[in-house]
Design a protein around this nucleic acid. Structure first.
Length: 579
RNA sequence: CGGGGCGUAGCUCAGCUUGGCUAGAGCGCUGCGUUCGGGACGCAGAGGUCGCAAGUUCAAAUCUUGUCGCCCCGACCA
């Protein structure tokens, strides 16, 4: 393609509303433009990269035995009501009424639809296993879109769903996808980390997340220094902290007047103490039951761990009335004392149990108590009492004795074992060999196509622009003619361009009649991995320059050997990636 | 949703505090000329309902209210 025929609107200035490098560069390199908050138009260069990513995904999915289909992006609400996810998804799911008054949703994902399809078409174990996937737009009305394409409202997702007859078969499908994902991200040139993940809202029993470590990532991943354990923050287990040396003769608990000081920070400031000396008491409702979680003041509750501790049933922060009833005080003054008798579960984090003495709410409005000793002033064991891990890991924590390291990462894919959550509700059943009716086991496997693009830029860029991996670059080669007005230069550049095309290389020819400096700046910005520079100086000597975007210096080649040399370089760059 | 900020030319922004003359700059864009290997220069131009609506006023980009949009921070979002 010739640059002069393409819409590649590069910009010098950094757009005001772009914070992270990938967002800035995607605008500056002319890959995309914003239409509204969280929705983007992909321009020729951006779309070419997305097509290349989708091509890789497609090849690997097909090679792994999955079959491509396409499902509607408008789905009937009834399907979502059948699985209860109309409530679970809440405002994130965009809903609208059609002209007949039927409720519809804009697909945020497709478990319901694909299970509906399977329920209708799969009747026998002979049809299993089957793995169906699509590459399509998804819409999630995020409360806060940000970082360009990293958290957008509309995005392209590859979503695959396996249907299996038994756990062993599901395990095989899961493993096939896991392996396919490794190949996909490798071929896209990403450095990724696989972490254990919670299956969360999706339901199900096992999950891994594929994450690209980088500062702009919104996910927090945690791993041991030796790399033998990696998980996301929702999942990462932490060892109990060592018991603090007990303080001799702690005086009895003593009430302190703390008027209107309902937050940890406020109380700390007032009492000149630190959050890690505080005992935080959170009250949850789980249907009719009330659950109390006790944490150290500087720690955060991990909702997934709480749910696990409660046998998989999620609990919600209690409303004000419940908090008043249970604690006998306004919100912000609850304490663990006497709670065991009032609630169905008293869950105490290890870190609290390890404290020698602390400060807690007094269960009395505007009062806290000091000299609270865990085990003395509230129980650490008993029928309803458990000491366990219910918090997020923090810097300094250990997992099975090994120190944990924290990193930000971009989630580019996740695989889940779903089990029968959807198939049972939507009637995806089959007859097994003995003629007995069975419910399909399912797995689901997602990849964020646009996130692959953004994270590739995020980890490979410099002050001048993008440095694409060759596999997903909009073009493999760029021919830059420095003096397009010079007839011989123009003719030489054109001939090289034609020959590269003829040999099936993916080439962009910058044929614009612009000054060299401008063309070089643009070339660096859009980041095509290989550049051939054709200029007057070289051409008179029968030479051109060949330069890799990622390298500082270039090499010289004769005009005759240039094409062959580029072909060789392309081969090398692919070999590096595909290893 | 709670808190904060911003809407002035295609882009980045100034002007607003203290209302007043033809609403500005840089970049980009068009034409001509000179330049021509790392974002050149000169001359001449095009381009603005100052987000929208109402109000105050002799007079509003500027003050007030409302509204819409966008961005940032926060809250168990894949």
């Amino acid at each position: 393609m010739k640059w002069s025929n393409l819409l590649i609107p590069t910009v010098k200035e950094v757009p005001a509303d772009a914070e992270v490098p990938s967002h800035q560069l995607m605008i500056r390199a002319g890959l995309m433009r914003k239409l509204s908050s969280g929705t983007y138009t992909y321009l020729p260069l951006g779309w070419r990269t997305l097509l290349k990513i989708m091509g890789i995904v497609r090849e690997e999915m097909n090679a792994a035995g999955a079959q491509e289909i396409l499902m509607p992006s408008v789905q009937p609400m009834e399907l979502w009501q059948q699985t209860g996810r109309d409530v679970a998804y809440g405002e994130t799911m965009c809903r609208f009424k059609d002209r007949h008054g039927r409720m519809n949703v804009l697909a945020p994902t497709a478990e319901e639809v694909v299970t509906y399809v399977a329920a209708g078409e799969i009747n026998s174990y002979k049809q299993l296993p089957v793995n169906l996937y699509q590459i399509s737009f998804k819409f999630r009305d995020e409360f806060r879109p940000r970082f360009g394409v990293l958290r957008s409202r509309e995005f392209i997702m590859k979503d695959a769903y396996s249907f299996n007859a038994d756990p062993a078969s599901l395990e095989v499908s899961y493993r096939q996808m896991y392996d396919a994902y490794c190949r996909i991200f490798k071929r896209c040139g990403l450095d990724y980390v696989i972490v254990e993940a919670e299956s969360g809202e999706m339901g199900g029993s096992g999950s891994h997340q594929f994450t690209v470590p980088c500062d702009s990532g919104e996910d927090i991943i945690v791993h041991t220094e030796d790399g033998t354990y990696a998980a996301n923050i929702e999942k990462a287990g932490v060892d109990p902290l060592p018991k603090q040396p007990s303080v001799a003769h702690v005086p009895p608990m003593e009430e302190i007047h703390t008027p209107h000081l309902g937050s940890i920070e406020a109380v700390c400031e007032f009492l000149q103490s630190r959050p890690e000396q505080m005992i935080k008491t959170l009250i949850f409702s789980q249907g009719e039951n009330v659950v109390v979680a006790v944490l150290r003041g500087d720690h955060e509750l991990n909702p997934e761990k709480l749910t696990q501790a409660l046998g998989g049933k999620a609990a919600e922060l209690a409303d004000e009335a419940t908090i008043r009833r249970i604690s006998g005080a306004a919100v912000g003054f609850a304490g663990p004392m006497g709670m065991a008798e009032k609630v169905s579960h008293l869950l105490i984090d290890h870190a609290v149990a390890a404290m020698a003495v602390g400060i807690a709410g007094a269960n009395k409005t505007d009062y806290h108590v000091k000299n609270v000793v865990p085990g003395r002033d509230f129980p650490l064991e008993g029928q309803k009492v458990r000491v366990l891990d219910i918090r997020n890991a923090v810097e300094g924590d250990r997992h099975q004795g090994k120190k944990l390291v924290f990193k930000h990462g971009i989630e580019v894919g996740q695989v889940f074992k779903l089990g029968t959550k959807y198939s049972s509700k939507l009637g995806a059943k089959f007859l097994d060999e003995s003629g007995a009716e069975q419910v399909c086991l399912m797995g689901c496997y997602g990849i964020g196509i646009n996130r692959i693009m953004a994270s590739a830029i995020e980890i490979r860029n410099d002050n001048d622009g993008i440095i694409w991996p060759i596999s997903i670059a909009p073009f493999e080669v760029l021919v830059t003619s420095v003096n397009q007005d010079d007839e011989e230069v123009a003719r030489t550049a054109e001939a090289i361009y034609q020959e590269l095309c003829r040999q099936n290389m993916d080439v962009l020819f910058d044929d614009r009649r612009l000054r060299g400096g401008v063309k070089f700046k643009d070339a660096d910005l859009i980041g095509i991995p290989i550049r051939i520079t054709v200029g007057k100086r070289g051409v008179t000597e029968g030479k051109v320059e060949i330069k890799l975007r990622r390298h500082e210096n270039s090499e010289t080649a004769t005009i005759d050997e240039a094409v062959a040399r580029v072909k060789e370089l392309i081969g090398q760059l692919y070999a590096e990636i595909n290893g």
